[in-house]
């Protein structure tokens, strides 16, 4: 009886997954097209939220440069567990057409390993919807997120916070 009661929380969490959208590339236009009435994603329960403290998974659309990397890891660190990662586009795989540039991070899957990955340049909204339904299955079965076991993001975040303590900047008062 207790297991059936606890299963209710898993069912509730899987049927309304909320996400944080970090946009930094051309693939984020297809996410905004999913909000429209033609490829409606609210009928499955997805919703974008403004703050990472209320979200279930983070969506990485497009490429990650060296200036953006500490901000992305800080956003992922502020999410409560269980937290998953969803990556779109060939730029998040190996850098895409910029794979030998000096300011693009090319080994993103080694730093923050994704749970579901959708390919394309950019993929059509129907393909992204297939990937999102896979994500729903993963949340329903309560698998552990891949970024908790593997990945080097914890050490990199510690180094960046030592270099720049103002990274987690909150609003503050100045003067009187």
């Amino acid at each position: 009886m207790l297991t059936k009661f606890l299963d209710f929380f898993g069912w509730a969490r899987a049927n309304s997954p909320w996400m944080v959208h970090y946009c930094s590339g051309c693939c984020s236009l297809e996410i905004l097209a999913l909000m429209g009435p033609r490829f409606d994603w609210e009928r499955y329960g997805f919703m974008p939220v403004p703050s990472p403290r209320q979200a279930d998974f983070i969506v990485i659309t497009g490429l990650i440069s060296r200036k953006v990397l500490p901000v992305l890891l800080m956003t992922y660190d502020q999410m409560p567990k269980p937290r998953y990662v969803f990556a779109i586009g060939s730029c998040a795989f190996d850098g895409g057409p910029y794979y030998d540039s000096t300011s693009v991070v090319t080994n993103v899957p080694e730093i923050l390993p994704p749970d579901v990955f959708v390919a394309g340049c950019p993929p059509t909204p129907e393909a992204i919807l297939e990937g999102l339904l896979e994500m729903k299955k993963i949340i329903r079965e309560k698998r552990e997120a891949r970024a908790e076991r593997e990945g080097t993001w914890k050490e990199i975040l510690k180094q960046e916070l030592e270099k720049n303590p103002l990274l987690s900047q909150q609003p503050f008062f100045v003067g009187g």
Binding site: V20, H21, Y22, C23, S24, S28, L32, P48, V49, P50, P52, V68, V71, T75, Q169, Q170, P171, F172, F173, V174, G175, G176
Partner: peptide
């Protein structure tokens, strides 16, 4: 009044672009 520093960071839901402002209000 008191001066209040508000960062309008690079991850924001109103503007889907990575731009960062620091306002002093």
């Amino acid at each position: 009044g008191k001066k209040f520093v508000v960062p309008f960071g690079s991850q924001h839901i109103a503007i889907p672009e990575p731009i960062r402002f620091i306002f002093t209000t």
